[in-house]
Design a binder for these strands. Structure first.
Length: 320
DNA sequence: ATGGTTTTTACTGCGTC
DNA sequence: GACGCGGTAAAAACCAT
């Protein structure tokens, strides 16, 4: 594929698309084509992306011609921050065979045993590394319990790594810092989880999480804006089985509230919950305050108070 | 520690199915 | 009568100082 660079980009792209006979578009039942470069399966009739994120074994960079493509394509396994050594460490096979599958002599075997031992020692070299190993396990556990996407776990891992590098750990539990990292990462990624939700899956108390979180954010100079109420809306709306329409209305209410500055000082979760409830009301969909209170972990009283404010704010605006 | 603000808890009254 | 909703008062939690 890279032997001629006279091919134009468009033909090259067409070459990379292979039609997938096993699938047809659910919307228009047209033909479906898989685009490996973007890891998507897409309908050629209406452009609907039938499947995305299927694979990513390709280069990490986008290439604009084939020369560049050769230069930039990735060599070796992808690295990940989720393994304590980024997946780059050496592993020595435990079988006493050489590369051809022949058994080793006694002398060689001894040597290999020694090598394995030392390799293992270096792999989890000091307390820091072992520390990391455990923390990353925790991060992974909590992230999946909260249904957080891959990139959040990566971010959390990075945060933890940094905390470790800056010697923020002494005096604080691994658990606490990992939890704080997850909390921060989720917020940074725009898919926040409330402190209560985090506490659910952590082995540490809420107060400690909060304390550690503040500390880590300050020491690392992390930029975490106050959680945007809107980012809670989709989650709440979907667990309540509300329509797109109400979700949109809820967003609208929140934006409006933001413009009028009604929201300062109030808990974002409460605002979001109230907006969802109010939106359901406006679109005549059945929900109860109790139900919203349940999924949002916010008292009904707060929902009442907030949603009155939201509706009032809405009253003032439409004149313009 | 303190005071101000927000959220929660607990309880009560009203209307509807 | 249970349910959904609204309001209130007092307690608790939170935050900045």
């Amino acid at each position: 594929m890279s032997n001629t660079n006279t091919r134009t980009r468009t033909t090259e792209e067409e070459q990379e698309e292979t039609t997938d006979a096993s699938l047809s578009c659910p919307e228009c039942s047209g033909k479906v084509v898989s685009d490996d470069e973007h890891g998507e399966t897409v309908c050629i009739e209406c452009g609907l992306v039938v499947e995305e994120d299927s694979v990513d074994r390709g280069p990490e960079w986008r290439a604009f011609d084939s020369r560049e493509k050769d230069k930039k394509s990735r060599v070796g396994a992808p690295t990940t921050n989720m393994m304590h050594d980024k997946g780059l460490s050496t592993n020595i096979d435990w079988r006493d065979k050489d590369a051809y599958g022949n058994a080793l002599g006694a002398k060689q075997r001894k040597k290999m045993q020694r090598l394995r031992k030392w390799n293992e020692r270096f792999r989890t070299r000091d307390s820091k590394e072992r520390n990391l190993k455990q923390a990353l396990g925790e991060i992974d556990r909590m992230a999946s319990a909260l249904g957080l996407p891959e990139n959040v776990r990566e971010t959390a891992s990075v945060i933890y790594r940094r905390a470790l590098d800056e010697n923020l750990l002494p005096g604080r539990s691994i658990e606490g810092v990992s939890t704080a990292a997850v909390y921060a990462a989720a917020r940074q990624a725009g898919v926040p989880r409330s402190l209560d939700e985090i506490t659910e899956v952590s082995r540490v108390e809420k107060s400690e999480i909060a304390r550690t979180y503040r500390y880590v954010v300050r020491e690392l100079g992390l930029e975490v804006k106050p959680a945007d109420p809107e980012s809670y809306v989709p989650r709440f709306a979907s667990s309540l089985g509300l329509s797109e329409e109400s979700e949109r209305r809820a967003r609208q209410l929140l934006q409006n509230a933001k413009e009028q500055g009604v929201h300062s000082g109030k808990s974002p979760v409460g605002l979001a919950a109230a907006a969802v409830y109010a939106a359901a009301l406006l679109t005549n969909e059945k929900t109860t305050q109790a139900a919203v209170s349940e999924v949002a972990d916010i008292s009904e009283v707060t929902i009442r108070n907030r949603y009155h404010e939201l509706l009032e704010a809405e009253q003032d605006i439409p004149i313009a």
